[in-house]
């Protein structure tokens, strides 16, 4: 469904590439986590899939099509096949839950009757029955993210990209969101989720693709998060481990969670 062939993305000629000759394939219906520290290239990966950016070299295939060959006026069609969810929800504050989801259908010209039928159905899928007429600020963070997911999947995209969808949510709520994403995945949608949340990754036991400095250093099925929290001296060990193709040995430690949170905050500031 998504295939990267030796993809390199350079933002700044003087700095190291954001993605460095990455080759990766994510199959139809798969659920993959994209993990790695801030700046490891997760967001660049997602941007390339959406054709928000152009790869410096290599080819990106989405649904069998090389995105470099999609002309700019056909890019909207590509994006209709991809749903996107963000850490900060990105709902329209003055629109109700129903209107927020319906907006995604209105702007691509769906008829009113189709919207009336589809939106409640999707809201039911994400567990928001009966909250159609609430405004975003009247909802909890988890509920807002559910609205955002509903909006992302209402046009039945083949791919759902989630960029740290649980980054602003507490662990319990996060698990609820993961339940929703899992349900969407079971319905046949390919899900790619960039995350820092080790608990979730460990709980879900799905495919894990780990990026570091723009390089895939691990790609495992039914994997664990395997703590990528940067510790002094650990980064070199990891690189050595990947170079020798050996799984890195990381002792379980207390306090990982807190450190991961600190890093997410930093990442959030970087994006703002």
């Amino acid at each position: 469904m998504i295939r990267f062939e030796n993809v390199t993305k350079v933002y700044d000629q003087k700095a190291r590439p954001a993605l460095d000759s990455i080759s990766l394939e994510i199959d139809r219906g798969e659920f993959a986590f994209l993990v790695g520290a801030s700046g490891s290239g997760k967001s660049t990966f997602l941007r390339l899939v959406l054709k928000e950016d152009r790869a410096s070299s290599g080819a990106v295939y989405v649904a069998g099509q090389n995105v470099a060959n999609i002309s700019s006026w056909r890019v909207p069609r590509l994006r209709r096949g991809i749903g996107v969810v963000f850490q900060d929800f990105r709902l329209l504050p003055q629109k109700t839950v129903f209107a927020n989801v319906a907006f995604a259908m209105q702007v691509i010209g769906k008829s009113r009757s189709v919207i009336r039928d589809t939106v409640p159905e999707v809201l039911k899928t994400v567990g928001l029955e009966g909250k159609e007429n609430r405004l975003p600020h009247e909802l909890s963070g988890g509920e807002q993210q559910r609205v955002a997911i509903a909006r992302a999947v209402v046009n039945r995209p083949g791919i759902l990209l989630a960029d740290e969808p649980t980054g602003n949510l507490d662990p319990t709520t996060s698990m609820g969101i993961m339940g929703v994403l899992d349900k969407i995945n079971q319905n046949g949608t390919t899900v790619v989720m960039a995350t820092h949340d080790d608990d979730i990754v460990n709980e879900m036991r799905k495919r894990v693709v780990e990026l570091k400095n723009g390089v895939v250093i691990r790609d495992e099925a039914k994997a664990l998060y395997t703590s990528m929290i940067p510790v002094v001296g650990q980064s070199r060990r990891l690189r050595d481990a990947s170079g020798r193709d050996e799984p890195p040995v990381v002792p379980p430690r207390a306090g990982t969670r807190a450190e991961a949170r600190a890093e997410i905050r930093l990442a959030g500031e970087g994006q703002a």
Binding site: R77, L78, I108, R151, N155
Partner: peptide
Amino acid sequence: RETGIMRLVGASKMVI
């Protein structure tokens, strides 16, 4: 905000 969401869900250039 609106236009960003419109882009993401694949609204055409004309509609935006």
